[in-house]
Nucleic acid binder design. Structure first.
Length: 570
RNA sequence: UGGGGCAUGGUGCAAUGGCAGCACACCAGCCUUUGGAGCUGUGGAUCUUGGUUCGAAUCCAGGUGCCCCAGCCA
């Protein structure tokens, strides 16, 4: 009996790759991960990363990390480092790091070959002229409500220049003899092609920008279509996996490689990941950062990898999420609840349990000796016995959660109220006797009596209480700030909306008066902690020993909150 | 009046001609020293019309709906 490890890549990709191996198109597998270094990675990128990585892995192949740095006006080294850092944090391993710019010389040679074969020419038209001569899409598409029909493009007046003239002009473009935007090199395909991408696509444009790696050497830079496939081929990439929007580029991808008789890399597409309440548009996320709506690219409310990371989500949870949602060619929107469920599942297994009171209310145990302190045994993780136990100090005055006391309890409220008995977790059974109020009528102290026979929380007489609440000894508590996060947006699809009207003003609530059990003093940045009954938390990057700060990664499921909500609706 | 892609519960994914299943969400219950976790159960789907077949989510034909494409962005 051999247990097969389940595949982490979708069947349609697995089968396509297997077929290429079987029929001899390739005898090895190499994939590539092609980020453009112009921003930080977000969770939408992870899916593509993982498909590339796992495809190589499953077929015993290798992965290259290749930065697509063909547009010097937008790209920066800062992002190269950040992307490498994020990808390795995820656990992705690559055989080597390359850059599209590593191939600029070879690519230029290939362009010259195409010109020599008569498949490319230099066009002197202005951008407007080129656009106008490309033809139009028919009425009904989003670009054209008024145009009545599809119109074929018309040939550029420069389309039939001689090979010699093209070669000369291309050389001079490369040498920086012409102004930016004055000329381009175009492939010579078909100006009437139904696929507009094949209407003589631009290969090179003139740019005098400074490139982060090649400096000022180049005055022409390749377009995506004249670079990506060629780089794949030059690197011996067998399978170039990308998102559905590139499907229409595939004929062009193949056209170039066929004309050049180059290594036949194969492009395969899949749908990109969409997540509700997540902003995937780089441009819009940048705006959030620039306008100060969030605190930076690593704001825990963002679904950038850095944000998720700072929030306390583990790489394993992210990988579980992406592989469990699966990959197809369907357009889809995964619910944020799905991500949260997987984060909870992951953290439930690994997080140490601790007690923390976020909104404190003083509870005084009147019959407990004034100066007595007891060390109570508390379980670190009921899901993991090997995590052991710890001691938690207990004394006469403790803090409990404001939510855990009601002077007049609503229906089905099991927590503390006058006359009711509850368990202080790992402590004692206590019964509420009376409250103390301030002048405004707010409860400032809850008074209880405890049953000394119930140390640890078990009643020898077998009596049950309906509720167990958490607490922190006032004399031993560690004070901290706790940041609670909610959805950043009020709508499911923030990429579609107008930014100003979709921001949730309550997405961050910073509680500065929280009391934590003393064991939390030893918390480190990599720790994952469950504050019992509240949620999963981790130390924030801004935290210092003098001023500890914790982030809420995700709440626990809260059936009482749900019950209350139901009561409001009905 | 172009080209391309995609249609399975609310959401995401399976079922590769043979009992439509899983996860999340939802609802009900059990259990519980976390109103957590866990467990049990209910409801709910093959876009449509026709065809092939003993048998169709799957194959064929037509229709419908949604998405992508006119950057010297990637």
């Amino acid at each position: 009996m051999t247990e097969e490890t389940p595949s982490k890549i979708p069947a349609f990709i697995r089968e396509a790759v297997a077929e290429d191996l079987k029929n001899g198109r390739f005898n090895y597998v190499r994939t590539r991960l092609p980020p453009e270094p112009n921003g930080y990675l977000h969770i939408g990128h992870v899916k593509a990363f993982l498909i590339d990585y796992f495809t190589a892995q499953e077929f015993g192949g290798e992965l290259y990390l290749r930065f697509d740095d063909t547009n010097p006006s937008k790209e920066e080294t800062e992002f190269v480092d950040a992307i490498e850092d994020d990808a390795s944090w995820l656990g992705i391993k690559w055989a080597k790091v390359t850059f599209a710019s590593d191939y600029f010389d070879l690519l230029y040679d290939w362009a010259v070959r195409l010109v020599q074969m008569g498949f490319a020419y230099v066009d002197d038209q202005t951008q407007e002229e080129m656009s106008a001569s490309r033809g139009t899409l028919p009425k009904g598409t989003k670009w054209s409500e008024t145009e009545s029909a599809l119109k074929p493009g018309v040939d550029s007046p420069y389309r039939n220049r001689s090979v010699e003239e093209n070669l000369d002009l291309l050389e001079r473009m490369k040498n920086g003899e012409f102004a930016e935007g004055s000329r381009v090199l175009r492939a010579k395909i078909d100006m009437a092609h139904p696929n507009i991408l094949l209407r003589d696509p631009v290969m090179y444009r003139i740019m005098n920008a400074h490139h982060h790696r090649t400096g000022d050497k180049w005055h022409i830079y390749p377009m995506y279509d004249w670079s990506h496939g060629q780089n794949d081929s030059m690197e011996g990439v067998t399978h170039s996996l990308c998102s559905n929007e590139y499907i229409i580029h595939r004929p062009l991808y193949e056209w170039f490689l066929q004309k050049l008789e180059a290594f036949p890399s194969r492009q395969i597409e899949f749908s990109r990941l969409n997540l509700t309440y997540a902003m995937m548009s780089k441009r819009k996320v940048r705006k959030l950062v620039e306008e100060g709506i969030v605190r930076g690219w690593d704001d825990p409310r963002l679904t950038t990898l850095r944000g998720l990371r700072r929030r306390g989500v583990t790489p394993e949870a992210i990988i579980n999420f992406v592989t469990s949602t699966g990959e197809t060619k369907n357009d889809s929107y995964v619910e944020m609840a799905q991500l949260e469920a997987i984060i909870r599942d992951d953290l439930n297994k690994r997080a140490a349990r601790r007690m923390a009171v976020l909104r404190p209310l003083k509870l005084v145990i009147d019959n407990y000796p004034d100066d007595m302190v007891e060390e109570m045994d508390a379980v670190n993780n009921p899901e993991d016995p090997s995590a052991g136990t710890r001691k938690v100090p207990f004394s006469k005055v403790v803090y409990i959660e404001q939510d855990d006391f009601r002077e007049t309890p609503p229906p089905k409220y099991f927590r503390l109220f006058p006359g009711n008995e509850v368990r202080l977790r790992y402590g004692y059974l206590v019964r509420c006797t009376h409250v103390v109020k301030d002048d405004a009528g707010n409860v400032t102290e809850v008074h209880c009596t405890y049953d000394p026979a119930t140390k640890g929380g078990d009643a020898p007489d077998g009596r049950k209480v309906k509720s167990t609440i958490h607490w922190v000894s006032a004399a031993h508590a560690m004070k901290a700030e706790v940041r609670l996060y909610e959805q950043l947006f009020t709508v499911e699809r923030p990429d579609d909306g107008d930014l100003d009207s979709i921001i949730n003003p309550n997405s961050l609530e910073a509680l500065t008066d929280c009391y934590l059990e003393p064991a939390l003093k030893n918390a480190s940045l990599s720790d994952r902690i469950q504050f019992e009954r509240t949620g999963y938390f981790c130390l924030d990057l801004d935290s210092t020993p003098e001023k500890p700060i914790f982030n809420r990664t995700v709440t626990l499921k809260d059936s009482w909150a749900k019950e209350q909500k139901k009561g409001q609706v009905e």
